[in-house]
């Protein structure tokens, strides 16, 4: 599928979605409120067939957080990047780990590194950091005077 076809398809599913085509793949911006049903629909859509999530991460833009989901189809090999802006003070988003199982560990990682709260995640605990750790290491304002390497 070309980017144009994907755009048409996605606009059918969610008219409010906006696009950005500057990168390698098509970027889709979605509101957090519409996010969950949008993801369900693009997963189950026969033409889009985005069955493979190869990357899930978050970017801290200092004013807000952006969740980035890289999705791909194992049959037709087109890729779509879904981005969701989150409030930095109270980042909350629905989980997708029942749609793509790989998201479970990735979401836990994002949870502890960025403090994003994934609603309805079955087991949202610290995965990597020690249990008594305070702070979100991958946020831009995180400072650790002892362990951080600065050049």
């Amino acid at each position: 599928m070309t980017n144009e076809e994907i755009k048409i398809k996605i606009t059918e599913i969610l008219p409010a979605a906006t696009f950005d085509e500057t990168g390698e793949w098509l970027n889709v911006f979605v509101e957090a409120s519409a996010f969950r049903s949008f993801m369900e629909q693009i997963r189950s859509d026969k033409d889009l067939d985005l069955d493979y999530m190869f990357c899930l991460t978050c970017v801290d833009w200092k004013t807000h957080l952006t969740m980035v989901y890289h999705l791909s189809s194992t049959n037709t090999r087109h890729c779509v990047v879904v981005k969701v802006k989150l409030d930095r003070d109270k980042p909350e988003i629905e989980t997708v780990c029942d749609i793509w199982r790989t998201a479970e560990l990735h979401e836990r990682e994002v949870f502890e590194m960025f403090g994003v709260n994934f609603l309805h995640h079955p087991d949202l605990r610290l995965l990597i950091l020690p249990d008594d750790f305070i702070g979100y290491p991958l946020r831009k304002d995180f400072e650790d005077p002892i362990n951080m390497i600065k050049l």
């Binding site: 190869f54 990357c55 991460t57 970017v59 801290d60 980035v68 890289h70 199982r101 790989t102 479970e104 560990l105 990735h106 990682e109």
Partner: peptide, 27 residues
């Protein structure tokens, strides 16, 4: 996967490594 977000500086703004082991472990 190597995911780089650049702001045009000499350092990456955000970098993410999508490692194969992490996903394989989840299975």
């Amino acid at each position: 996967g190597v995911y780089i977000v650049s702001e045009g500086a000499a350092q990456p703004y955000r970098i993410k490594f999508r490692s194969p082991g992490f996903s394989n472990l989840s299975a």
